[in-house]
Design a protein around this nucleic acid. Structure first.
Lengths: 226, 226
DNA sequence: TTCATCCTTCGATAATAATCGAAATGTCAT
DNA sequence: ATGACATTTCGATTATTATCGAAGGATGAA
């Protein structure tokens, strides 16, 4: 009837509260089981199953069978991007729900949000980079300053490589627990990777928690203080 | 009940076929009246009015009153971005509708799609840049090559300025009429601006048509042929 | 003023889909 | 095998909402 790609179908898949909650949970990058997703969405396993079938048929999520569980992940980086953009709009428009984030104190402190650092330390990173004038965030988004560019290079991040991706370099991402911004986008992800490589932090198995070593946390503090 | 920005609400607004059609029509960048949008969506004016009220309340579109008409535009570049990403997903997933594009031959030839060049000439531009190896498009998106970067600079485009925007530099956009890709993103928009500045082309008042001068079209052909 | 046009509001209808209880299937552990 | 758990299927209910006809307001033209 109408022209071009069918936006409505895809958007409708993201447009149901239960499904949106599941997808947001999958932004952590972890593969989650059907029941875990049901809990995240606050619906019974039956309903979740129905939703997941739709998301799977629409190629929004990808299932992976393992034993008696089915693990789901987002089907690609474009889905992450779409969710990030929608979060940005929802945020600009002022439509956010009220709930405090995860209760686990370690989760509140430092965790991964898909592939970048979130939690208190994520917020601290964002604020620190801003105070040091390495990034600037305004209405249009987040930008690396020239000081920020040289900082990134010195810190061992291949900016040109990042730029060649479709994904935007910097993006603001609202923190679930802290209710403040942390840094998303390919640069945010690269920073976290670098923290891993430098041995400052490591990811706790089977969880979203990022655990900093004593030494790593110290160096991190130096990084984000002026 | 749940955490963070309310993705579902925004996505649901984009997730209705009638609304999606209206928004896609608005991607041309032109301000359209309520009745025009009703026609685009294939619904009666009453239904369109109801949809537009919702989109307006959700700050997806911005109304502007003029005489007895109400003109609507997309409320910001983030909306364009969201629509572009969703089109990309829908395209990847293989969900597209069947309809040929606009019937006006001049529209098929060269028109604006929000702020970049579309139609046959838009496709020719995309193909030409690809053949000249100034851009490369793969699964991850579209990237400027180093040859493309120097070309852009010589052509008078401030790439650093563009990079400082939230919007991605290059993006593929499926052409409604030609069913092939043309170049979107801030670089695509900058190219069209440059065509205007150089006097190669100008926009026809009150329409989406881009009219190239005889000389401009010739130079354009030189640009896109190897 | 009077008329035509653009748009909205109201009310009713119909279609869609989210939800869950109950039961079935499949997988692992013992 | 038997039991426990994860997931799906089925069926029925309920809530939501897209849709349009009819009528009302608002604006500009004559």
């Amino acid at each position: 009837m109408k022209e071009g790609p069918d936006i409505a179908h895809v958007a409708a898949l993201l447009g149901d509260p239960a499904r949106a909650n599941m997808l947001t949970a999958l932004m952590s990058g972890r593969a989650l089981t059907a029941t875990e997703l049901a809990q995240e969405a606050g619906v019974t396993p039956q309903t979740a199953s129905s939703h997941l079938a739709k998301l799977e048929a629409g190629l929004i999520v990808t299932p992976r069978k393992q034993g008696r569980h089915r693990y789901f992940t987002l089907s690609g980086p474009d889905i992450v991007e779409a969710l990030e953009v929608l979060m940005g709009i929802a945020n600009r428009v002022g439509h956010n729900r009220v709930r405090t984030g995860p209760k686990d104190p370690e989760l509140r402190h430092a965790r991964v949000c898909y592939d970048h650092l979130a939690g208190d330390m994520g917020v601290a990173l964002f604020d620190g980079l801003t105070k040091r004038k390495l990034i600037i965030s305004d209405l249009n988004g987040v930008v690396l300053t020239s000081a920020g560019i040289s900082f990134a290079t010195e810190f061992g991040i291949d900016l040109d490589g990042l730029r060649s991706k479709r994904r935007p370099l910097c993006r603001e991402c609202l923190d679930w627990s802290a209710r403040q911004s942390h840094l998303a986008g390919s640069f945010g992800a690269a920073l976290l990777d670098r923290f891993y490589d430098l041995g400052w932090a490591s990811r706790v198995r089977e969880s979203r928690i990022v655990r900093f070593s004593r030494d790593g946390e110290k160096k991190f503090r130096d990084l984000v203080t002026f």
